[in-house]
C-alpha cells in the first residue's frame, strides 16, 4: 500500500445493497455535502467495478441523486447467470453494501475536511 492517504466509503457515507431482479444495487448516501462532492468525483463506476472484480461483475452503472446526496450503483446481472441460479452464499447481494463501505479512495490530503464529526 502506498503512502498516499486514503479514506473509505464507510467513513463518508452509509451504503446498502440488495437485489433488483438479476442486478445487484448499492445505494450510497453521503453524510455531508463535502463528502458527496468527493464521492461524486472519486467513487466512479470504474472503481466500483474493480473493487468487485472477483464476484465477477460484468458492468457497473452509476446514477446521481444530488438532492439527497446519494449515488446509486447498479451491478448489472451480478446475481444470476444463464446456466443457473447463483450458487454463491450471498445470492441477494446483501453483503455488497458492507463491502462497498470498505472501498478506499485516495484523498490527496483532504481527509479532515471530508470526515463528518
Amino acid at each position: 500500500m502506498s503512502a498516499q492517504q486514503t479514506i473509505t466509503v464507510g467513513q463518508l457515507a452509509r451504503a446498502c445493497s440488495g437485489p433488483l431482479g438479476d442486478d445487484a444495487t448499492i445505494g450510497v448516501v453521503a453524510h455531508t455535502q463535502a463528502g458527496y462532492d468527493f464521492l461524486r468525483a472519486e467513487l466512479t463506476a470504474a472503481r466500483v467495478k474493480v473493487h468487485f472484480a472477483a464476484l465477477p461483475v460484468a458492468d457497473v452503472h452509476r446514477y446521481e441523486l444530488p438532492r439527497v446526496r446519494a449515488l446509486n450503483f447498479v451491478l448489472a446481472n451480478a446475481l444470476a447467470s444463464d446456466s443457473g441460479p447463483s450458487l454463491r452464499f450471498d445470492t441477494d447481494g446483501r453483503l455488497l453494501g458492507a463491502a462497498m463501505a470498505e472501498l478506499a479512495l485516495p484523498t490527496r490530503g483532504a481527509t479532515t475536511r471530508l470526515c463528518s464529526t
Binding site: 452509509r14 446498502c16 440488495g18 444495487t25 445505494g27 452503472h61 439527497v68 446526496r69 446519494a70 446509486n72
Partner: peptide
C-alpha cells in the same frame, strides 16, 4: 432523514 434517504435509493435502477 438518513434512514429514509437510504431506503429511497435502495432496490432502484435508474432513479430518474
Amino acid at each position: 432523514r438518513e434512514t429514509v434517504v437510504q431506503q429511497l435509493v435502495s432496490a432502484i435502477g435508474d432513479p430518474a
